[in-house]
Simulated assay, not measured.
Amino acid sequence: MVHRLDPLVIRHTHRVPVPDGPAGEGAVAARQFDAALMSVGFKLSAELLEHLSGLARDTVVGIAARTLRTVRELVGDHVRHNVYFIDFPAGVPDTFDFWMRCVTEALADDTTRANTLRQLSTGVVDLLTLPAYGAYQHTYARMLAHHDELIAAAGDRLTVLHRGGSSETELTALYLALAGSPTPLGEEALGDLRELAGHCADGPQPAEIPVRENRAVLNLARVMAGSEPLLDTVTDVLRLACAFAGGDVTLQAPTRLRALPRPVRRTLLAGLDAVVAAAPAKLADVHAHREMWKRLGE
């Protein structure tokens, strides 16, 4: 069964979650899928191609459509990227030469000549008023045609997509990997962790969450999904409160701990009680952020 979060698996792991059936004649659709992927720098592994070939055609087409949409976003193909200088990275003029050309073109333009002369007479020119600045000197189609040789060269570098397991298996594995990351996650990956934590709230949980900020995001998603937070220290409780308040879970910047709903407060108090009951010495960590704890208790 296809899951709405499958694109996260493809994006992070280059694995395509696939079902075991229904069986059918999907070989032609699978080869067409592979060819379409190669046009954007990806390719099916031999194992994945073989598996898809044994599935029903409609199943393969559905997987192909969703996967192609995801990989196009991975390479930025869903956005029409243009370049300011058509020969970029070659052909970029010297800064002084570039601005002199912009001024010259402004003087040659009847609509901007008077304003440019007036600025020159003062000795200061607002470069942002020059018509050549900030405007593409060529169309997107012309740029693509000009870079045909680069597009051909890019085709030599392919990223292989491998066969994954079921959606649930792959989503759980990705959730555990992100939650157990030894380094802080970027903004996009944190958003993915939040989605996965909510989805996997009732499934296997990471044995260890090394990064406290990741834990705060994960716990917020768990509580929102109706599950208990995974708390290890009293500071984890404070970070969770900051997450609910939309503040800084790193505790580096001040967070306005506005009045939290009663269910949230009960969850925080229950979590705090559980942490202290398991290890009373951890209560000493409250002193490190005593002022924030005071505001939380108000």
Rank of each mutant, 00 (worst) to 15 (best):
208 E>A: 14
256 R>L: 13
11 R>E: 14
52 L>Q: 11
26 G>Y: 05
96 F>D: 14
228 E>Q: 15
134 G>A: 14
17 P>L: 09
297 G>D: 02
121 S>C: 01
150 L>W: 11
147 H>F: 00
175 Y>S: 10
248 D>C: 14
230 L>S: 10
249 V>S: 01
234 V>C: 08
179 A>E: 08
75 V>K: 10
241 A>F: 06
277 A>D: 15
263 P>A: 05
79 V>T: 12
177 A>V: 10
91 G>F: 07
221 A>T: 04
84 Y>A: 06
128 L>T: 14
254 P>K: 06
264 V>F: 08
194 R>A: 15
131 P>S: 10
277 A>K: 13
171 L>Y: 04
55 L>F: 11
107 L>T: 04
186 G>A: 06
65 A>G: 08
4 R>K: 09
185 L>C: 01
282 K>Y: 03
33 F>K: 00
170 E>R: 01
231 L>R: 09
115 N>S: 15
264 V>I: 15
68 L>P: 05
72 R>A: 11
129 T>L: 06
16 V>D: 04
196 L>G: 00
1 M>D: 14
206 P>S: 12
183 T>W: 08
56 A>D: 15
180 G>R: 08
216 A>L: 12
26 G>P: 03
156 D>A: 14
128 L>V: 12
114 A>F: 13
72 R>C: 14
147 H>G: 08
120 L>P: 12
286 V>Q: 12
74 L>V: 06
280 P>E: 02
44 L>W: 09
125 V>C: 11
194 R>M: 03
219 N>K: 10
60 V>T: 09
239 R>P: 04
155 G>Q: 13
199 H>M: 06
118 R>W: 09
40 V>T: 09
167 S>C: 03
262 R>F: 12
68 L>E: 07
106 A>M: 11
159 T>D: 03
33 F>Q: 03
181 S>H: 12
276 V>P: 01
